[in-house]
């Protein structure tokens, strides 16, 4: 479903992402891990067809992200780091709008909206303005926006940041259920989250993939935390920490 080959992004001399290669099969939930500034968001933006890569290629649902960007856009659901809400719209209005721009047929639009409201636990706020929502609800509306059209691939950039523990548990539950029919790429820097939700883990550091492994293979020999620290510290001395996107 997702195949990434040597993806690279430069801004002038600054290299945000230098060599990202990984893949994800259908139904897999991939944890995309890395310290802040490792290039997670930049990579995700390239996969979501928002930024063009400088080099390398990627295919999503069989379509090339550069040459077939229009097809890719039809098959992904994308939640950016900050949920892209319109403050002056109510939740229902907003989701209707999203349904329309994603090309859902008029007849099933209302049904899709109420379905996604139920799945993301938004019933209580359906008629509230997006401007008046708390961080947790904003995040959930963002998630609803990403899955309303039942896309093959769902890309989530830190969907649980800023949520309270109860909300985190609910969102994780939801992401887990999504994995049954979709491929999910989940960016995060919370390790237990990956343990709980994902089948596979990809760790990036300084713009490079340093580990790609099925979670089952990691086993008891080393905990994910140890692995992560190992991967991140190996070449951390290099150029220090840089902020990427």
């Amino acid at each position: 479903m997702i195949e990434v080959q040597k993806l690279e992004k430069r801004y002038g001399d600054y290299i945000a992402v230098s060599d990202v290669t990984f893949s994800a099969a259908q139904g897999e939930i991939v944890g995309f891990l890395g310290p802040n500034g490792a290039g997670k968001t930049t990579t995700i933006r390239m996969l979501a067809t928002y930024l063009p890569p400088t080099a390398g290629s990627a295919r999503i649902a069989g379509f090339d992200i550069q040459r077939q960007a229009d097809e890719v856009r039809r098959h992904i659901g994308y939640l950016p780091e900050n949920p892209p809400l319109y403050p002056e719209m109510t939740v229902t209005e907003y989701l209707h709008f999203i349904g329309r721009i994603k090309g859902l047929p008029k007849r099933s639009l209302t049904a899709s909206v109420s379905d996604v409201i139920e799945r993301c636990f938004l019933g209580d706020v359906r008629n509230k303005l997006c401007a008046h929502l708390s961080r947790g609800y904003r995040q959930r509306v963002g998630l609803a926006q990403a899955i309303i059209h039942d896309p093959k691939v769902i890309i989530l950039d830190e969907p649980t940041s800023g949520l309270d523990p109860k909300q985190i548990v609910e969102i994780r539950q939801l992401i887990k259920t999504l994995g049954q029919g979709h491929t999910v790429l989940l960016s995060t820097h919370i390790l237990p989250e990956v343990m709980m939700v994902c089948n596979k883990v990809v760790i990036v550091n300084q713009g490079r993939v340093v580990l790609e492994k099925q979670l089952a293979e990691i086993g008891a020999a080393a905990t994910l935390e140890q692995l992560f620290m190992q991967c991140v510290s190996e070449d951390a001395q290099g150029s220090g920490s840089k902020e990427a996107a």
């Binding site: 928002y50 994308y78 319109y86 403050p87 721009i101």
Partner: peptide, 14 residues
């Protein structure tokens, strides 16, 4: 500024 352009740009809209 609000980040909603990212939403429109990654949607099937041209």
């Amino acid at each position: 500024r609000r980040g909603t352009f990212e939403l429109l740009a990654t949607s099937p809209l041209s």
